[in-house]
Design a protein around this nucleic acid. Structure first.
Lengths: 112, 112
DNA sequence: TGAATATATGAAGAATTTTTCATATATTAA
DNA sequence: TTAATATATGAAAAATTCTTCATATATTCA
């Protein structure tokens, strides 16, 4: 507080830069094949760490690390059930962004 | 052609895997701060390589390399005007995905 | 409490990605 | 044709990201 007052234009500029950084982080979180596979899997249903680990044939540790990234980016949330941790997609936006991306590549490459 | 016929379920599975790979590629193309800055800039208007290079204070070569990636992912298209090459976002989906991402982070972090 | 199970995490090595540097290609202008 | 300008590109160096390995933490069960 008590900061020198900025012009509206300057404010917008800073705001844009912040949005830009956050969008960059969002897409970075989306950007690795393992994380995409995890998100695809979670699009169908909630899963525990070990279930994901088995589905992707990857070590528990590798999956945990990636889930950590996804948590930081708020792409997934979780609840604990006993010693299990059940992950799911965080919110509808994630579904929406994903659906739009799927729609895009389907139009782009029109498979089959 | 003349491939062994697959069950529908198997087909869907392969299709999903292809979609998954393509979505992964799409997000990977979106995933680096420099590329995000380029795309943000192109969201406003078409730009030449050197304009982008100046705007981001990055070398012409670095920008060219990143534009190359963006071209491969079909996120940008270009037209030549003399010795200049003018880049723009490839299609509406790119705008849409971007807008959704912006909306998402704005809701998530509600700035100001 | 001790053993078993599920997940998390720090650090190091492996792998991938990005930038730089040098130089090539293409276009225009003199 | 030569010089100047804009962009592209291959290879190496720099930076970042991902996985593994070892181990820690947390929970349940006997």
């Amino acid at each position: 507080m008590a900061e020198p007052k900025k012009s509206k234009q300057e404010d917008y500029h800073l705001l844009d830069e912040q949005v830009e950084r956050d969008v960059a982080d969002l897409f970075k979180a989306f950007s690795n094949p393992t994380r995409i596979k995890i998100l695809f899997a979670l699009k169908h249903r909630k899963l525990t760490v070990s279930e994901i680990s088995e589905m992707l044939s990857m070590s528990q540790s590798a999956i945990s690390h990636q889930l950590h990234e996804l948590k930081l980016a708020r792409l997934v949330k979780f609840e604990k059930q006993g010693r299990k941790v059940i992950y799911e997609l965080d919110d509808d936006h994630i579904h929406d962004i994903f659906d739009l991306a799927i729609e895009h590549v389907k139009e782009l490459y029109h498979y089959d």
